[in-house]
Nucleic acid binder design. Structure first.
Lengths: 238, 238
DNA sequence: TAGTGGTCTAGACCACGGT
DNA sequence: CCGTGGTCTAGACCACTAA
């Protein structure tokens, strides 16, 4: 672990355990530098982390203070790991299983060409899975991935987590995700697999996920019943 | 403007205009430091900005490269300014007008006490507005704000933008926002004001918005028809 | 006026990548 | 092995806030 992250962690725990009370200033940067036996620039890097987490804020000429909402966001440590996919997000809530409704390879549609930045002759996986939480149908997941970016997907992979295949078997790093969230009326597949009535709304998340190199690797749509969870997000200030 | 931001802007435009092509490395930090006649730390601060925008990534020991999706996110400059509220988000698309369905002051509910970090004897504004885009009903907006945090709200304010009142009249700075997004069935008010059928889903955004000091100042719910827009978000990597 | 955070410099050492 | 980015130091000057 690097020094500035260790210092950030130490200050973070002092905020959470009340050593630095909400609304109060934390020690000035020069004092922190002496206390941690380091330079001021390193302290500033630690402070930058805590600012980006929404725990503290600085007023130039005045000091650096613990935010009143610090406790609310202390849960921000574990962020919202949508990256890790359904398996990790809901795994703690029970048993996740999958039924594979479709697994094929084909050429992409215009929509997919645009979103995945590929050509019309680039083969893609076309995957449709129904995911269960404790044997209750939870979400319908449509996934399109370019074959050359994420090779060697098998039915075996699909019963588990595609994301751990990417990170562990292929050693790729996941970068940004670009999401669009809509409400929609249930279509026939929703009604069949998610047990929807015509009056039960669907919450759909459409996303393009990128590797850290900027290569798009997944264009997916996940659909769930309106009463099976919502999407959380934290928008940071500029 | 500070130096590292100017350098970031210069590199950003070189990426967008193709001087630094997608997939290629940008010059190494030492060369950039010489070119811009500055130190390496300052170059790193500029590079950090572009990383956080998803334009470039670094491979230690190898170099810093322009992402393949750089063009996709070049629009990230203007981010998703949900902060500025409905007026700024949709203002460019036409004329935004408001009808005030309720404007009153009362004591908070338990739900509001928890989300706004206030006590049960702290008065709050209770506001319900119907917002129109080009005279078409767009969203129903329920807003709760503590009176002492955002004083002097008038009907006049409500016909315009509460956010510009906060930033310009009160000189307060807006910080994080914490959002929850659901799909829901239309209630009687939705049906009446948004012209919904029983089978028309509603997209609801529930949010708590904080000042940069961490004081929560707004707890609101905005409801819109499923076919009147969706929510965009960009999730950054860790 | 004194103290704060914001910015910047000119060095330095390290781990890692590709040769 | 050399060059890269990642980290860190010990100074410095500035704009701003508060007394």
């Amino acid at each position: 672990m690097v020094l500035y992250k260790e210092i950030a962690q130490d200050i973070r725990s002092k905020i959470i355990n009340g050593t630095y009370p909400v609304g109060d200033p934390i020690p000035e940067q020069i004092k922190l530098a002496k206390d941690y036996n380091t330079s001021r620039v390193t302290i500033q890097k630690a402070i930058d982390i805590l600012k980006s987490e929404g725990l503290i804020f600085s007023r130039p000429g005045s000091g650096t203070f613990v935010k009143k909402s610090a406790n609310v966001f202390s849960s921000l440590d574990n962020d919202i790991d949508v990256y890790e996919g359904v398996t990790a997000s809901f795994g703690s809530m029970g048993l996740i299983t999958s039924e594979i409704l479709n697994f094929s390879v084909r050429f992409p549609t215009d929509d997919e060409i645009e979103n995945l930045l590929i050509t019309k002759s680039t083969p893609v996986y076309d995957i449709l899975r129904l995911r269960f939480l404790n044997n209750e149908p939870l979400i319908l997941e449509y996934t399109i991935m370019p074959v050359y970016v994420i090779p060697n997907i098998t039915e075996e992979t699909l019963y588990g987590s595609i994301y751990s295949h990417i990170q562990q078997n292929l050693s790729l790093k996941i970068g940004l995700a670009n999401r669009k969230i809509h409400a929609d009326k249930p279509n026939t597949l929703d009604q069949k697999y998610l047990n929807c009535q015509l009056t039960d709304p669907i919450l759909e998340v459409e996303q393009v996920v990128y590797l850290d190199t900027g290569t798009p690797f997944e264009y997916s749509k996940t659909r769930r019943r309106y009463d099976k969870g919502s999407i959380l997000m934290i928008q940071k200030s500029k």
